[in-house]
Nucleic acid binder design. Structure first.
Length: 835
DNA sequence: AGCACGCCGACT
DNA sequence: GTCGGCGTGCTC
């Protein structure tokens, strides 16, 4: 048997399958999707099997074939369907196939390579016994080192030198003699956690009899048997059993010797939700709108068809209940379901709803889990213990084999795009996966992305089917939104960051003991350091970016290259001492709140206060328990929260994002305002929203205030069409980086030229139905990172396949330069952030 | 990406 | 004369 393997070397020349022979004893466990260890050149690597065959591969010298050394998992971590998906991803996002395969498995399975030295006992003995002591090396440490290594079995060179300092040359000569041998090791980052488990041997009657047959002096052994019988002979974790009965392990060992129980190492899970009890919930009755949507989805599910639905439902219209019941139906049909939610809204509230409905049938995957916890949840999927997965972006790769339904909540969220390689978009991957699996996709949002809405129109080819929900499930109207023109406030002498209206509204809520959500529309801007005298901003010496102030270490750090320096007390430019760090903005709002409303209790949520693991949940729980009057924060307070006593939502400055040089700025602003407005008055108490802005006439802001998606859509689409932006075209960003600007400029121009030529060639060879425009090259928004300058070409295209082929071929022409002179080219297909 | 092989400067 | 610098070429 032969296997085709993609090896763990993310580079262009190795980005193809390599053929290996599979030894007979491994044939049973090598299949497409297996993770294997293979020799590759002078080293040993991890790889994924992407093909198997009985016949020897053609076109390769048999003598060159090497053999698979080991299969790394009992069950393959990937399914053939996922292997195929990885192949598609590498073509679509222009990433090495191994990178796509790697994101599909938990980080715990990423290989760790190291080298160890072992003692060659046979060589050692032969030399010692050669009986010519005068010829043996005389180093006194020799024997000691050999003994130590013999006891340990193996050791890394570092560990060995730590134990025997200064023996580097000894080590080298022993390796040369062949007494020591270097071996490569391939390890998982994380291994399976196991626990000794007690398995009763025999039937209940047998054990009962055995227990009573034991003489009185074996009382403790009897106690153990009784405990096992009381638990219905279920296997027990040894530590727990010992604790419960109050005996030591020797007692159980005695029982094992008698053959009454068996002790085995069993894989255990770190279940992060083990301690919590989730009250089971029943399906709620659906409103007319909800059941209309539900029926549509069920129809497709029943047919086992692939179809993409765009579910546009106003905030509070009860999308989640529709998801839950659709999943229920999917499970009844014997299929599995994946639910994607933005990381930020994967709150305990959300998890609770799914755990409550489906109990242990759900695995939860999110980045706040430790490596090990994440791995364990994922293992539950592999072992077929769950049929539903809820998680952030990468949960789209859950290794299900009978996928029936994929739900993407808040589908417009930019966090579905991975910003590192492979730069995939979970929505596009989901659709591709569902196509292959014959599964339905439901994209849900109150404010869908323009791309998705466009896909429901005739012009967009009616690729998606639009389903709408206009009314809120609890019958509450959408809260009225009041726009406050801050220019007027300033004119009237109000220089505070709170308008008269917002000030009064806050006061009222405090009086009535209702709660307030305040949003500062600023993308998690980090704290930076500026001189108030001359305007100097502390920047990274290696990157064109401001340094970030870190409170706890009192240092300034660069988030791009890791550069760090001490906090400054004097401006390096003008020597002024008026140099200080500027808060995230929320800090300043908090200070002002406390000043204006003495005794006000504020919870501030931003990058500073939520960096710690679990802090996000902690703050939300506190707010839910009404331990604070105000929840103040950036984007993160806008998403998916549902607190009944929130009756006021205030937006401090609506337009800060509008001025970013990104064609999606208007869309983002509209979405954010709509989302945050939806936090108010969700239950019995009526809500109110106050939006402060300097540009109340801007269509994004006006439309959000009027809860008018249609108006927003019309204007925004017009803009996009006029400027040739998505959804009328798609984008590919190609970023080039090099240490020298002149060289970089020349290469960038050459690349742009090449792209244009390739496009022309495609057109001339009769290819049509595509457009391909090259913009730039221009300096990238962050013009230098890690002392490398950056230029960018933007491609506007229509026609996926042709465009990626043109880009792939053009970039390939620079491969030689990439290797030779440290040129780097990074391709981002369908970028979400243009910054 | 590594790692080996190979060809030129500063040292015992 | 050797140790070690990093250029370039290959990996089933």
């Amino acid at each position: 048997m032969y296997a085709q393997v993609i090896v763990d070397v993310p580079a262009r020349p190795t980005d193809r399958p390599f053929d290996y022979e599979v030894p007979l004893e491994l044939e049973a466990c090598v299949e497409v999707g297996s993770r294997v260890e293979v020799p590759f050149g002078p080293r040993v690597l991890q790889g994924f099997v992407v093909g198997v065959s009985a016949e020897a591969p053609a076109g390769i010298d048999r003598s060159k074939l090497r053999t698979v050394r080991r299969v790394l998992d009992m069950t393959p971590p990937l399914t053939p369907e996922l292997v195929e998906l990885a192949r598609w991803m590498s073509g679509k996002y222009l990433c090495p196939e191994i990178a796509a395969l790697q994101v599909m498995v938990p980080g715990a399975l990423k290989a760790k390579y190291d080298k160890v030295v072992v003692l060659r006992e046979d060589v050692w003995r032969r030399r010692e016994e050669a009986a010519q002591p005068e010829l043996l090396p005389t180093d006194p440490v020799r024997a000691e080192l050999a003994d130590w290594l013999r006891a340990r079995g193996e050791a890394t060179a570092e560990a060995l030198l730590e134990r025997f300092p200064g023996s580097a040359s000894l080590l080298k000569s022993m390796l040369a003699e062949g007494v020591l041998e270097e071996r490569q090791r391939v390890q998982d980052r994380m291994s399976v956690k196991t626990a000794l488990t007690v398995f009763p041997c025999g039937t209940e009657a047998e054990l009962r009899e055995a227990a009573s047959a034991l003489p009185a002096r074996f009382q403790k052994q009897k106690d153990v048997l009784d405990a096992l019988l009381a638990e219905g002979l279920r296997p027990q974790r040894l530590t727990e059993l010992l604790h419960a009965v109050g005996v030591t392990s020797s007692v159980v060992k005695s029982l094992e010797a008698k053959g009454l129980v068996e002790l085995r190492d069993v894989e255990v899970q770190r279940d992060p939700y083990a301690k919590r009890d989730f009250a089971r919930t029943q399906p709620l009755p659906l409103t007319e709108e909800q059941s209309h949507v539900y029926e549509a989805v069920c129809g497709t599910l029943a047919d086992g068809r692939h179809e993409v639905f765009l579910l546009q439902g106003v905030t509070g219209s009860g999308k989640t209940e529709v998801y839950l019941q659709s999943i229920q139906r999917c499970l009844e049909l014997g299929k599995e379901a994946i639910v994607l939610v933005p990381e930020i809204s994967l709150t305990p509230q959300m998890v609770q709803r799914f755990k409550g409905r489906f109990g242990d049938d759900v695995a939860v995957l999110h980045s706040r889990l430790s490596h090990g916890e994440r791995y364990d949840e994922w293992r539950r999927i592999v072992r077929k213990e769950v049929r539903v997965v809820i998680g952030a972006r990468s949960a789209i790769f859950a290794p299900f084999t009978k996928l029936g339904l994929i739900i993407i909540d808040e589908e417009h969220e930019s966090s579905y795009k991975q910003e590192e390689s492979p730069k995939y978009h979970a929505r596009d991957v989901a659709i591709r996966r569902a196509e292959a699996a014959g599964a339905a996709v439901v994209l849900g949002s109150a404010t869908p992305s323009l791309e998705s809405v466009f896909a429901t129109t005739r012009e967009g080819g009616r690729k998606f089917r639009l389903l709408e929900m206009h009314t809120r499930a609890l019958g509450r109207p959408l809260p009225p939104v009041q726009l406050v023109d801050m220019r007027e406030e300033l004119k009237n002498g109000n220089r505070s960051m709170f308008s008269g209206a917002l000030h009064k509204a806050i006061e009222e809520r405090l009086h009535k003991k209702e709660q307030i959500v305040l949003l500062l529309n600023r993308r998690g801007y980090a704290t930076f350091v500026m001189c108030r005298s001359c305007g100097y901003v502390a920047g990274c010496p290696h990157c064109d970016i401001a340094l970030t102030y870190h409170q706890n270490s009192r240092t300034l750090r660069c988030h791009y290259c890791g550069y760090a320096e001490r906090e400054k007390s004097q401006c390096p430019d003008c020597q002024s001492e008026h140099i200080r760090h500027f808060g995230t903005g929320t800090q300043r709002v908090e200070e002002e709140l406390v000043k204006l409303f003495p005794g006000i209790r504020v919870i501030r949520m931003d990058v500073d206060t939520t960096s710690e693991k679990g802090s996000h949940e902690k703050w939300l729980t506190m707010f839910g328990e009404k331990k604070a009057d105000v929840l103040l924060g950036t984007q993160m307070v806008a998403k998916g929260l549902d607190f009944p006593d929130v009756t006021l939502v205030g937006v401090i400055a609506a337009d800060t994002v509008l001025n970013l040089p990104d064609f999606r700025a208007g869309e983002r602003t509209f979405q954010l305002l709509t989302q945050v407005a939806g936090r108010a008055g969700r239950h019995t108490l009526p809500g109110e929203v106050i939006v402060q802005t300097y540009t109340p006439e801007h269509y994004s802001i006006a439309a959000a205030a009027g809860h008018d998606y249609a108006a927003f859509l019309e204007t925004e689409l017009e803009h996009r069409r006029a400027n040739g932006y998505p959804p009328y075209a798609r984008l590919i960003n190609i970023t080039l980086s090099h240490e020298e600007v002149p060289r970089l400029m020349r290469i960038s121009d050459a690349l742009a030229q090449r792209l244009k030529e390739q496009a022309l060639a495609a057109r001339q060879s009769g290819e049509d139905g595509f457009t391909f425009d090259v913009l730039g090259p221009v300096a990238a928004p962050i013009a230098r990172i890690k002392d490398r300058y950056r230029f960018r070409c933007m491609v506007k295209y229509r026609g996926d396949a042709v465009a990626s082929r043109i880009v792939r071929r053009s970039v390939a022409a620079f491969e030689e330069q990439m290797a030779k002179e440290k040129l780097q080219i990074s391709v981002d297909v369908d970028p979400q952030l243009l910054m």
